[in-house]
Amino acid sequence: MSTRTRTEPSDTKQAGVARRSAPDGIPEIADPLSVSTVDARTLSASLFKRLATLEEGTAEYSYVRNTLVELNLSLVKFAARRFRSRSEPTEDIIQVGTIGLIKAINRFDAERGTEFTSFALPTIVGEIKRFLRDTSWAVQVPRRLQELRIDLARARDQMEQHLGRCPTAAELAAHLGITDAEVAEGEQAANGYIARSLDAPVDEDDALSALTRGLGNEDPAFDVVEAVASLKPVIASLGERDRLILSLRFGEELTQSEIGARLGLSQMHVSRLLAAIYARLRAALLDEASS
């Protein structure tokens, strides 16, 4: 079996597990942290089969589970690298990620034929994200708003998987049983989640560096504001139904099917109506530009 030289003796401590001699009938793995990634997957598959036959709380069960944690600690480090730009110490993130790894081991069912790596990584990343949501507030905000932000983030993740798109504010409000104003308040509170000094060095790998690179550039949103101002008289001249369709499409961000359900129209009919409205608005903008 291939191995690599162990260079991080503190990993066992970070994982929060203790090494002990292998019980009878279970092969001894002297140093799980030094096992290569390929061998770790092979050993993990065998250990998961053995774990399923053991009674939880026994010495054998604890040994196998702790060995699985150490064999797969590289998954935690891999997930932690996604958050290396955060202000929290890497050691804390790894510690929290290890909790996610343990949860994944406890929940994993080898009989389903799923690769453990594919099963564990979302659990590890989710545990780290929850930790960061609870602790990474750059500006102090009321606890109520912190919890509201977490609820909104979780609901958005769940609904996005179910709907196949990002939910609207109205859909989030209905899902959580709160008002649209409370949704807006929670999203505004998220602005206090992370702050960064404008004097900080620019890191090309950091998405926040786009802020410093864009300072002094013309904001393209000015064109949008000007276009909206030009369209106000045209929108006011539209019929009541056309104005309602625009409000539902761009105000509440409903899909064509949802608008049709709201108004008792087919999705195709809504599509034709929107196309006609867009054409009228586009012609008005072109006339404004030429004049």
Rank of each mutant, 00 (worst) to 15 (best):
S2G: 06
A15Q: 11
V17C: 03
V17S: 01
V17G: 01
R19G: 04
P23Y: 02
D24K: 14
I26P: 04
A30L: 12
D31T: 11
P32N: 04
S34R: 07
S36I: 01
S36L: 07
A40S: 15
L47R: 07
L47E: 06
L47P: 03
R50G: 01
R50W: 01
L51W: 07
E60M: 02
E60A: 15
V64P: 04
N66R: 03
N66G: 09
L68K: 01
V69Q: 02
S74N: 11
V76Q: 07
V76G: 08
K77R: 15
F78M: 11
R82L: 10
T90H: 10
T90E: 14
E91A: 15
D92L: 12
I94D: 09
I102A: 07
I102G: 00
F108C: 06
T117W: 06
S118M: 05
L121K: 09
L121R: 12
L121G: 00
T123F: 00
E127C: 09
D134G: 05
A138Y: 03
A138T: 05
A138D: 10
V139W: 02
V139M: 08
V141D: 02
V141G: 04
R143Q: 15
R143V: 13
A153R: 10
H162F: 07
R165S: 10
P167M: 00
A169Q: 12
E171M: 09
G177F: 09
D180E: 13
E182K: 13
V183R: 02
E185D: 11
Q188W: 10
A190W: 03
A190H: 03
S197N: 12
E204Q: 10
E204K: 08
L211S: 04
L211Y: 14
T212I: 08
G216D: 06
D219G: 02
D223V: 11
D223W: 10
V234D: 04
A236P: 00
L238G: 01
G239Q: 02
R241E: 14
S247H: 13
F250R: 03
E252H: 13
I259K: 02
L263S: 04
G264K: 05
M268N: 12
M268Q: 15
V270W: 08
L273Y: 04
A276W: 00
I277G: 03
Y278E: 15
R282A: 14
R282K: 12
S290M: 10
